[in-house]
Computed example of a mutant assay.
Amino acid sequence: MHHVSILDLSPIPEGGTPADALANTVALAQAGERLGYHRFWLAEHHNMPGIASAATAVVIGHVAGATRTIRVGAGGIMLPNHAPLMVAEAFGTLETLYPGRIDLGLGRAPGTDGATARALRRYFDSADRFPNDVVELLGYLGDPDAAAPVRAIPGAGTHVPVWILGSSLYGAQLAAHLGLPYAFASHFAPDYLAQALAAYRQGFRPSAWLSRPYAMMAAGVFAAETDAEAQFLRSSQLLAFARLRSGTPGPLPRPTDDLDSLIRAGLRAKVEHALSISATGSAATVRRQLAALIERYRPDELMITAAIHDPQARIRSFEIAAEVWKTLL
């Protein structure tokens, strides 16, 4: 494994505001840079009352401007919501402003509900055009062609690294076919992780973008001074995910010791399964659990995420995690 990185959904905490969430995001990115994390990625979600990163490229620019060395990018941009040219222009502009620090991860899902997708003026059938849209986008970011009738300016010649994101075999196969790096969303969709990584590695075809396969997996990490404290902090994410699955998303809840009364047993089991690629506990416990995940899946890079209500506890969690993963590289 080469690197460890951070995925942040810029969570809006219960009792807080989007401004609080974005300030917390910057503080976490600055801490991540200080701690030696390799990348800091943000994700596109719309009409979500608990997530402040809907205008993902704007937030990426804000974070990149507040940091100096850490790579900043999208994990990801939901391409069915956008024209490839506009994505190329946005990320070409970011790369021009912050050269050598910008990543572009692309997802096939709309990242929202049907009504919001229609409000975005894009539709679910756009996902069927995803491979063609990826190839079109790669063309805009590649070597400039003065004869091309349409060019991304800025964008052409920036060669922004493009990743394919996925939670099934589809993205793995596409990334392998196109010769692009691949990131699996195992932090909330664990079922096809092993199969997807195997399909990607076995089917990979070298390209102008990448000579050999490079696979990232994501995991939740909740670290604290004790196992009990870490489990308490994680309760916010479990409750938030349960509410999302129940169709009642909201701000990131405050942590609780009483999940059993707040999440019915059947739903609790499904939530625990969906979020099972994770490590929760003291430094010793997190080290043991992360080591097992790395040994089993052999990722080239690990991206960790944690929806923790208290921003200081969240930074402390990433501090402990950094102490741990530096012993595992």
Rank of each mutant, 00 (worst) to 15 (best):
R298Q: 15
A29R: 09
G203N: 07
W325G: 03
A274M: 05
R151L: 09
Y123G: 15
P299C: 05
E14G: 02
T280R: 02
I294L: 14
G250T: 04
A284R: 13
L97W: 10
H82C: 08
A189Y: 06
R316Q: 14
V160M: 05
Q173C: 11
Q312E: 15
Q202Y: 13
G171M: 04
L165Y: 02
A172N: 11
S207D: 05
D143I: 09
H177A: 15
D113K: 15
D20S: 03
L138Y: 00
N24R: 06
G114S: 14
V160A: 08
A127H: 12
L178I: 01
Q202H: 13
H38D: 12
L302K: 03
G36I: 01
D300I: 10
D133V: 03
R68D: 11
I315Y: 08
P18F: 11
T25F: 04
I315D: 07
I51L: 13
G220Y: 00
P11V: 00
T93C: 12
L178A: 01
Q312R: 13
V59D: 01
G220P: 09
L35W: 13
Q173M: 14
M303F: 04
A115W: 15
R264I: 12
D143V: 07
G266Q: 13
D257K: 06
A313S: 13
H82E: 06
L165W: 00
H46G: 08
Y192F: 15
Y214G: 07
I12N: 09
L106M: 08
R212N: 13
Y200R: 06
I164C: 06
E95N: 06
L35S: 11
Q231P: 03
G15P: 11
T69A: 09
A279I: 01
L106P: 04
G73K: 03
A240L: 07
W41P: 02
I77A: 09
A292N: 07
Y182A: 01
A199N: 09
L42F: 03
M217N: 02
D257E: 09
L193V: 12
E136K: 10
V59E: 15
R296F: 10
L104V: 01
A228G: 04
G157C: 06
W163I: 05
A183I: 01
E272T: 12
A115N: 14
R118W: 14
A64W: 08
A57T: 09
H177M: 07
G266D: 14
M86W: 15
L85Q: 05
F184R: 05
A19M: 05
P49H: 06
M78A: 04
T280C: 12
A313Q: 12
R68K: 10
F130R: 10
A219L: 02
L22P: 10
A279S: 09
W325I: 01
L35V: 00
L302V: 04
G166T: 06
S168C: 02
A199L: 12
H45R: 11
P251Q: 11
K270Q: 12
I12R: 01
P144H: 04
L275A: 08
T327Q: 06
L138M: 12
R34L: 11
Y170N: 11
L85N: 04
Q289G: 02
A242P: 03
G107S: 00
F318S: 01
S186V: 02
A291K: 10
R254G: 10
A147G: 13
H62F: 14
V324W: 00
P131A: 07
T93H: 13
Y98C: 01
K270E: 14
A64R: 04
L35G: 08
A228V: 03
H273F: 08
R234V: 02
Q289H: 09
A194E: 13
R121Y: 15
L329W: 10
D145V: 14
